[in-house]
């Protein structure tokens, strides 16, 4: 097995003055290359915190996190930023596109922060990715001129621009109607199947977990259960 994520006994405590809130109470998780995993749990269960830790947006209070075999749990801000830039792609519920940048500029934003990159090349690559996402003609538009589904496609293309090791999707369909949501799921599934992109999808919606390989249930900061999905659904089969 080609293991890219190995997290051991991760905890995260948020301090509010004297008291602390334990968002994660010891979570261990392994993700292999090419896997499509969903993390599901009610709000406040700690699933978002887990995603932030695995996505190197934050560091754990205790525990060990190996990304490609390298311990990243003690890295400083700059080192984490480098990892986010080169190895991780994010797709958010709120799309999180910069409103004043065009679609193309939003997509190449991660490349801009890589000093050694070639922006021309990145633009060409971005146009190809936008084309395969079916929104090539939107490249010069601003996010506000796009529909929700189109915006989320832009966000997915942005997450892919640096060929990341892993893509995290945090409630990717949460702000979309069910039909558009299914389209986004279809894209995510195809990316995994056709391009071998490793994906972790965080959701509270059980129907989305139906097309993932493995379903991790989180509750009260613990992993409640981990289920191998016996029947990986096609997009057409996903029941809402």
């Amino acid at each position: 097995m080609n293991e890219i994520i190995r997290a051991e006994n991760l905890t995260k405590t948020y301090r509010f003055g004297e008291s602390g809130v334990k968002a994660l109470r010891g979570v261990s998780i392994n993700i292999n290359k090419g896997e499509l995993v969903s993390i599901i749990g009610p709000s406040g269960s700690g699933k978002s915190t887990l995603m932030h830790l695995l996505g190197c947006l934050d560091t754990p209070t205790s525990g060990k996190y190996l990304l490609e075999g390298k311990d990243v749990s003690k890295l400083n801000d700059t080192q984490l930023a480098n990892i986010r830039n080169k190895k991780i792609g994010f797709v958010f519920q709120m799309f999180n596109l910069l409103p004043h940048l065009t679609v193309l500029d939003n997509v190449i934003l991660p490349v801009v922060y890589n000093a050694k990159s070639n922006l021309r090349e990145a633009e060409r690559k971005a146009m190809k990715l936008l084309e395969s996402a079916g929104i090539k003609e939107r490249a010069k538009h601003l996010p506000a001129q796009l529909s929700g589904g189109e915006r989320q496609r832009v966000a997915i293309v942005r997450a892919l621009i640096n060929d990341p090791l892993i893509v995290f999707a945090d409630e990717p369909t949460g702000n979309l109607d069910s039909k558009t949501g299914l389209e986004i799921i279809k894209i995510l599934k195809e990316l995994n199947e056709e391009r071998g992109v490793t994906e972790i999808i965080v959701t509270h919606d059980p129907s989305i977990t139906q097309f993932t390989h493995r379903i991790i249930h989180i509750k009260d900061g613990f992993i409640e259960k981990e289920v191998e999905n016996g029947h990986i659904a096609n997009v057409g089969e996903i029941k809402k």
């Binding site: 996505g55 947006l57 801000d77 700059t78 930023a81 480098n82 986010r84 830039n85 080169k86 994010f90 999180n96 596109l97 910069l98 934003l109 991660p110 922060y113 890589n114 942005r158 640096n162």
Partner: peptide
């Protein structure tokens, strides 16, 4: 603030 968060999420360093 949100813009700064987005920039950091895609890899902007503190000094950027």
């Amino acid at each position: 603030t949100r813009e700064i968060g987005i920039r950091k999420a895609v890899g902007a360093k503190n000094r950027d």
